[in-house]
C-alpha cells in the first residue's frame, strides 16, 4: 500500500516523499491514460488491438494483435467484450488516446495502452509478427476464485450433476416471479440464519441476477464449512424458464 511504502522510503532516508492517495482510479476518472506491462501484452488474457491500418499491421505488429483500424472501431464494438481487459496501440499518441476515451465512453472499464505505441514496443525488443491480420476477437473470461463456470452450472440446473445444488439468493419478491427448477431459494440476508435449509454434503452453486449477491452468499457458506461457488451471469426468469447471459 502506498502509505506503507512511503513510510519505508522515508525511514530509508528519502527526504522528498509524496503519496498520491486518490490513486489510479482518480487518475483514470480524470481521463488520463494507463499502460499495460510488457509481460501482460505478450501473455496476458487480454484483447490486444492494433488501431493502425491493415497494411501497416500486415507489415509488422505485436504478436497476438487483432486488427481493428481506428476508423472501424465503432462498427466493431459488438465484437469486443465489455468485461475484457483491452490493450490498444497505434502509431499516433492522439489516436490511441482517442480510441481509449471512446471505449471508456462506451462503458469499457479496463483500457490500457502500450507505452510508446508500436514504436515503443519494437524499441524495447518486444515480439512482432507479419502477414495476414487476425480480425476475430477470441477472448474468454477466466473464472474468478470461487466462481462456477456456465457449463458446470447448467449441468446442475438440468439435473445431470446430482452432486451440486442450485441456490437462489435473490429476494423473495424476485424469486416469486420464477427461478430454476429444483433450486433452493434462500435470500442472501437469510443465508446465515437458514443453514439448515441448505445441504452440506453437496456442492452449492449460488446465483442471483448478476453474481454480486451470489458471491457474498458463497463466502458466507464457505465460512460455515460448505463447498459453495458463485455463478456470474445476467439471469432473468419467468416460471422455470430462465435466460442466462454472460
Amino acid at each position: 500500500m502506498s502509505t506503507k511504502i512511503a513510510g519505508l522510503a522515508k525511514k530509508d532516508g528519502y527526504k522528498n516523499v509524496k503519496v498520491y492517495l486518490d490513486g489510479q482510479p482518480a487518475w483514470v476518472k480524470a481521463g488520463n491514460m494507463v499502460y499495460a506491462s510488457k509481460g501482460n501484452i505478450a501473455k496476458g488474457n487480454i484483447v490486444l488491438i492494433d488501431l493502425r491500418s491493415i497494411k501497416k499491421s500486415e507489415a509488422g505488429r505485436i504478436a497476438r494483435s487483432i486488427s481493428i483500424p481506428y476508423e472501424t472501431l465503432d462498427d466493431r464494438l459488438d465484437d469486443i467484450p465489455t468485461k475484457a481487459p483491452i490493450v490498444l496501440y497505434s502509431d499516433s499518441i492522439e489516436e490511441a488516446d482517442e480510441a481509449a476515451e471512446d471505449l471508456r465512453d462506451e462503458g469499457y472499464k479496463k483500457i490500457a495502452l502500450v507505452a510508446g505505441n508500436y514504436a515503443g514496443w519494437v524499441k524495447t525488443g518486444g515480439k512482432t509478427v507479419t502477414g495476414p491480420v487476425v480480425t476475430d476477437v477470441s477472448w474468454v473470461r477466466k473464472l474468478a476464485k470461487g466462481e462456477v463456470g456456465k457449463e458446470d452450472f447448467m449441468k446442475a440446473v438440468s439435473g445431470a450433476d446430482t452432486g451440486a445444488v442450485i441456490l437462489d439468493v435473490r429476494t423473495t419478491d424476485e424469486a416469486s416471479e420464477g427461478g430454476f427448477k429444483n433450486a433452493i431459494a434462500v435470500p442472501l440476508d437469510q443465508v446465515g440464519s437458514r443453514l439448515a435449509d441448505i445441504p452440506k454434503d453437496k456442492k452449492i452453486y449460488a446465483h442471483c441476477t448478476t453474481g454480486a449477491r451470489a458471491d457474498m452468499a458463497a463466502q458466507e457458506l464457505n465460512k460455515n464449512g460448505y463447498k459453495a461457488f458463485f455463478f456470474v451471469a445476467n439471469i432473468s426468469c419467468t416460471g422455470n424458464d430462465c435466460t442466462v447471459e454472460d
Binding site: M1, N16, V17, K18, V19, L21, G23
Partner: peptide, 11 residues
C-alpha cells in the same frame, strides 16, 4: 535521497 518519490495505489 533528495530525489522526489511518489507512491500510489488503488485509492
Amino acid at each position: 535521497k533528495d530525489k522526489l518519490l511518489i507512491m500510489y495505489c488503488g485509492g
